[in-house]
Simulated assay, not measured.
Amino acid sequence: MPKPLLAWDVMLLIMINIALLLTGQTLWKIGLQKIGGFSLANLSAIALSPWIIAGLVLYVIATGVWFSILSRMDFSLAYPLQSLAFVFGVLLGWLVFQETIPWTRWFGVAVIVFGVYLVALPVRQ
């Protein structure tokens, strides 16, 4: 019997990768808020911020996970699945940073989810 297109181990890796990327981005946002934003005047504070450094570490780990994903599935499937990070990013903005999300953005999130569903459908030949 052929192996399913989206094996659970690969989907788990994709979700771990997305979680690492989103956590890294969240740490960067928190770090930049604590420093007062990005500017050339505070580059050293940014470079030495534990929030920024932790986010970078998570990005390095996420890259290792991404290498594992790319070695196990087609790029044309893996990369669109990665777009679920945008969906979870909107949710994080709403939940963690208390951002107001307009209905158009929620609609865009729904379009992304539907697109991922279409991309993940098994290929019928």
Results as ranks from 00 to 15, higher is better:
G64L: 15
R72N: 14
F88C: 08
S68E: 15
S44M: 13
L40V: 12
S68V: 15
G89D: 15
L70T: 02
V87P: 09
A47R: 01
T100M: 01
F107E: 05
T63Y: 10
P80W: 04
L91Y: 07
F88W: 09
I61K: 00
S76T: 12
V109E: 06
A41W: 06
I61N: 02
I46R: 01
W94C: 10
G108L: 12
G55M: 03
F75Q: 02
V65Y: 04
V109C: 12
T100V: 14
A62M: 07
S49P: 07
S71R: 00
V57Y: 04
V60W: 06
I69V: 03
P102H: 05
T63R: 02
Y59T: 06
L84I: 11
S44G: 07
I53E: 11
W106I: 14
G64F: 14
L70Q: 00
I53H: 03
L81R: 01
L48H: 10
V60F: 09
S49R: 02
N42D: 13
Y79C: 09
I46H: 00
F97Y: 03
L58T: 04
A110W: 05
S76I: 05
Y79V: 04
L56K: 01
V87Q: 05
S39T: 13
F107Y: 07
P80T: 06
T104A: 14
A45W: 04
S49Y: 04
R72F: 03
W51H: 12
R72E: 06
S44K: 08
S76A: 10
D74P: 15
W51E: 13
L77F: 00
F75T: 15
V65W: 06
A85W: 02
A45I: 04
S39E: 10
L81D: 07
S71N: 05
P80H: 00
L77M: 09
S44E: 11
I69C: 12
N42T: 12
Q98W: 10
L81E: 10
W51Q: 08
A41P: 05
R105K: 12
Q98N: 14
W106T: 05
W106N: 09
V60H: 01
V111P: 11
L56S: 11
V57I: 15
Q82A: 13
M73Q: 01
F107C: 13
G37A: 11
V96I: 15
A47I: 04
L81F: 11
L58V: 08
V57S: 09
G55Y: 01
A78C: 08
I61Y: 03
F67W: 09
V109D: 02
L95I: 13
D74I: 08
W106Y: 06
I53Q: 09
I52R: 00
S83Y: 02
G93D: 11
L43T: 05
I69E: 00
F107Q: 03
F86N: 11
P80N: 03
W51I: 06
A54C: 08
D74H: 01
L58F: 03
V90W: 02
E99T: 03
S68W: 14
W103A: 13
P50F: 10
I101T: 09
Y59S: 12
L48T: 14
F86V: 13
F88M: 09
A45R: 05
A47K: 02
S49C: 11
